[in-house]
């Protein structure tokens, strides 16, 4: 056994890029198949869509045919052509280029929102779940209070106080999304907290921080990740809405929400510059929801977020 496990069991091959060059392709194929069987057909499509968007956003300079802000009044309101695949907008900017560059702000905003609310919400959830009692009840009441406040309303208030812009919108939504993550994570962490393996670790002399970070968090990680992905979709939707209202990203900057608010095009019956970014927002949110539900191991129709927000999205 010592011969096969030279440095303890943690070195047992579980990583992907291990093995000689000859077997690497085979190993990659195996990884891909394993990933596919985990994600399922719908999850794989969702992941592929999101990966493509991410690549476009990162490499915008490489993929976009034009400068997104280069106006040319002579080329205004052109339909799709070889020169402009999706046509141009009211001041002759290339719609495709604006979409590609717009994915940067459109994805960065929600990423910041989720990063902040996860960073606050998950530790809060773990602490509440671990100590229970008054600590838990106190945290839960505060979160309920925040939960009762719609994120968009909070963002409108901050915009009124600090002026419109991406930063105040992100801060407002980060606060609004904390209970979103925290409540679900708390329930999952609570389940882990009372399971005998946590008792066993306690008897082994490990402290709450170590058990929380090394064991409980690791076991609920898929759920946290899935929940974050779903929340990402809704943050994207909210930020696009705020940008549409002119409260987040400001007009000349390429952004999907800003693009949707191009009412001149709409009024002239020139729909492409408005519809395509709107469609992209919808596709993104759907992909994130499907992927998130898949990662968290929940069927999408049962997902509490899906249900709750689904109703609201329908009313909007």
């Amino acid at each position: 056994m010592t011969a096969t496990l030279p440095a303890g069991p943690e070195t047992v091959p579980t990583g992907p890029a291990r093995g000689r060059a000859g077997t690497r392709a085979g190993a990659l194929g195996r990884r891909a198949r394993a990933l596919y069987s985990f994600l399922g057909p719908s999850g794989t499509i969702a992941a592929a869509v999101l990966a493509a968007m991410l690549i476009l956003a990162v490499g915008a300079g490489l993929f976009a045919p034009y400068d997104p802000n280069q106006a040319s009044l002579l080329d205004a309101y052109q339909g799709p052509s070889m020169a402009h695949l999706l046509g141009t907008d009211a001041i002759g900017r290339d719609v495709l280029s604006r979409l590609i560059y717009g994915s940067r702000t459109s994805l960065l905003g929600p990423a910041l929102v989720i990063a902040c609310s996860t960073a606050v919400g998950v530790p809060l959830a773990l602490i509440g779940a671990w100590y229970g009692g008054l600590v838990d009840a106190g945290a839960a009441r505060i979160l309920d209070l925040v939960y009762a406040l719609p994120g968009l309303l909070l963002a409108v208030i901050t915009a009124a106080m600090f002026g419109p812009g991406l930063t105040p919108a992100v801060v407002a939504l980060s606060i609004a999304y904390v209970p979103f993550l925290s409540r679900v994570v708390r329930a999952a962490a609570r389940q882990q907290r009372v399971s005998p393996y946590v008792d066993a670790l306690t008897v082994q002399g490990f402290g709450p921080w170590r058990i929380g970070a090394r064991h409980i968090l690791r076991n609920i990680a898929p759920m946290v990740l899935g929940q974050s992905a779903v929340a990402f979709g809704y943050a994207l939707l909210d930020l696009a809405g705020l940008s549409y209202l002119g409260l987040a990203v400001q007009a000349p900057t390429a952004d999907w929400g800003v693009m949707v608010s191009d009412q001149d095009s709409m009024l002239r019956g020139h729909l492409l510059p408005v519809l395509v970014p709107g469609l992209l927002v919808v596709v993104c949110v759907m992909a994130l929801t499907v992927l998130g539900a898949r990662i968290a191991g929940e069927r999408p129709e049962r997902h509490p977020l899906w249900n709750r927000r689904g109703k609201r999205a329908g009313a909007e």
């Binding site: 496990l5 303890g8 069991p9 943690e10 047992v12 399971s195 005998p196 393996y197 008792d199 066993a200 670790l201 008897v203 082994q204 064991h215 690791r218 076991n219």
Partner: peptide, 19 residues
């Protein structure tokens, strides 16, 4: 030390036995 009744829940599911 202690050994609990339920062998299905008394080990961390995400950790190998060795680790």
């Amino acid at each position: 030390q202690v050994v609990f009744q339920d062998p299905y829940t008394s080990l961390d599911p995400s950790q190998t036995i060795g680790s």
